[in-house]
Computed example of a mutant assay.
Amino acid sequence: MPDWNWERPDQLGELMDQFTESMARCDKLEPLTVKPPYDRESLRSLGVTGIEFAAWKTDHPGGLGSDLVPLRAGDTVTEPGRLYRVDGERHFAMLDACQPLPFEAGAVDWVYAEHLIEHIPPDAAIDWLREVRRVLVPGGVLRLTTPDLRRYVESYLNEDGFFARHRRRLRAAGVGPPMPERPAFMFNQLFYLYGHRWIYDFEELRHALGQAGFAVVTACGFRQGARQDVAALDRVLRNDETIYVEAVGGASSGV
């Protein structure tokens, strides 16, 4: 992205959208015959036990990857809500987190969403969380990760070196040119870049999850949680800025 400019949010948003669409490709897409709403039995027959949101190709062997952006293979483009086999080994469905999910109640054991909820307006996010709770089996686990507002506030106030380390990490990963070093820029970019709509700390996440009917909400560490196979989906790149939260769904949550 030669025209990348951190200090032009609108232009950067357009470039990131173009980059995202260019990355949403695979070698082979096979549409499956199973029809929505998907129930636990039909998903299990495919080996699917859970859903990873904002992932075209999940690393979980029993995961269904999903994203709002369609996945492409040659002239084949995914259709909303339909299930596909990706490259002969994983499954994908194009899903909109702001719309009802095409699954029966209790269809999956787990749901994972890394750095997604901050992209959804707060009222729509609570509606999505209600849908997630509905499709989870009783006792099923939702794992959410998102940038931690408290981490940014503390670094802005205390000048603890986090901003500098985070800039170096993104630069080493090849994410754009060097970020401006001004503390106010580092704080503002959390709110105004990447399409972010609402930024959370633990209490704000617990509030949203409580509104959605989750009664058991736990703060976790990087790649630590109730289900190690799901926690293992955490990616290293942004773990320095991320808060990890798990919630228990279904009847066992006490709601």
Score class of each variant (00 low, 15 high):
Asp96Glu: 00
Leu190Tyr: 11
Ser42Gln: 09
Val245Met: 04
Ser42Cys: 12
Leu237Asp: 09
Gly161Thr: 08
Glu89Asp: 11
Tyr244Thr: 11
Val108His: 02
Gly221Val: 01
Trp4Val: 06
Pro102Tyr: 12
Met186Thr: 05
Glu246Trp: 03
Pro121Gln: 10
Glu41Ile: 13
Pro37Met: 01
Val69Gly: 03
Ala215Tyr: 03
Glu131Asp: 06
Leu46Glu: 00
Ala231Asn: 05
Ser253Lys: 11
Gly213Trp: 01
Gly88Leu: 09
Val153Asp: 03
Asp87Tyr: 04
Arg165Phe: 10
Asp127Tyr: 03
Pro70Gln: 10
Phe185Ala: 09
Ala54Glu: 12
Ala113Pro: 07
Gly139Asp: 04
Glu41Gly: 03
Val69His: 01
Val236Arg: 13
Gly50Met: 03
Gln211Leu: 14
Ser253Arg: 08
Pro2Arg: 15
Ala164Val: 10
Phe103Cys: 04
Phe92Met: 00
Leu46Arg: 00
Arg133Gly: 12
Glu204Tyr: 10
His60Val: 10
Pro100Trp: 08
Arg169Asp: 07
Tyr38Asp: 01
Ala208Lys: 02
Asp87Cys: 02
Ala93Lys: 02
Pro183Trp: 05
Lys28Leu: 10
Arg165Thr: 06
Arg150Phe: 14
Pro177Trp: 02
Cys220Ile: 01
Asp87Ile: 05
Pro70Ile: 01
Pro147Tyr: 02
Arg130Met: 07
Met1Asn: 13
His196Cys: 14
Gly140Gln: 00
Phe214Pro: 09
Arg40Leu: 08
Glu104Gln: 13
Gly210Ile: 12
Leu116Pro: 05
Gly88Pro: 09
Trp56Tyr: 15
Glu104Asp: 11
Pro147Lys: 04
Ala212Leu: 06
Pro138Asp: 14
Leu233Ser: 02
His166Cys: 03
Val245Phe: 02
Arg133Thr: 06
Ala55Val: 02
Asp229Gln: 03
Val69Met: 05
Pro61Asp: 08
His166Thr: 06
Arg85Glu: 09
Leu144Lys: 05
Tyr156Asn: 04
Ala113Trp: 09
Phe222Arg: 03
Phe163Ala: 11
Phe202Val: 13
Arg72Lys: 15
Leu205Tyr: 12
Gly88Arg: 11
Tyr192Ala: 13
Ala113Leu: 12
Pro138His: 09
Ala184Phe: 13
Met186Phe: 08
Leu101Cys: 04
Leu71Asp: 04
Leu46Gln: 00
Pro36Leu: 10
Arg197Leu: 12
Gly174Ser: 10
Gly249Cys: 04
Leu64Asp: 00
Phe185Lys: 01
Pro122Gln: 13
Lys28Trp: 03
Pro2Cys: 11
Ser22Cys: 00
Ala232Cys: 02
Glu41Ala: 15
Arg82Ile: 03
Arg82Asn: 06
Asp123Glu: 10
Arg85Asp: 07
Arg169Leu: 11
Val34Phe: 00
Pro80Lys: 05
Gly254Asp: 06
Cys26Asp: 02
Asp67Asn: 15
Glu89Leu: 08
Met179Pro: 00
Met1Ala: 15
Thr33Met: 05
Glu131His: 08
Phe19Pro: 02
Glu41Phe: 13
Pro121Leu: 07
Ala73Asn: 06
Asp123Val: 14
Val175Asn: 08
Gln18Gly: 15
Leu170Lys: 14
Val255Asp: 04
Ile120Lys: 03
Val111Trp: 09
Asp229Thr: 13
Lys28Met: 08
Leu15Gln: 13
Phe187Ala: 15
Phe103Gln: 01
Arg171His: 14
Gln99Trp: 07
Gly250Arg: 02
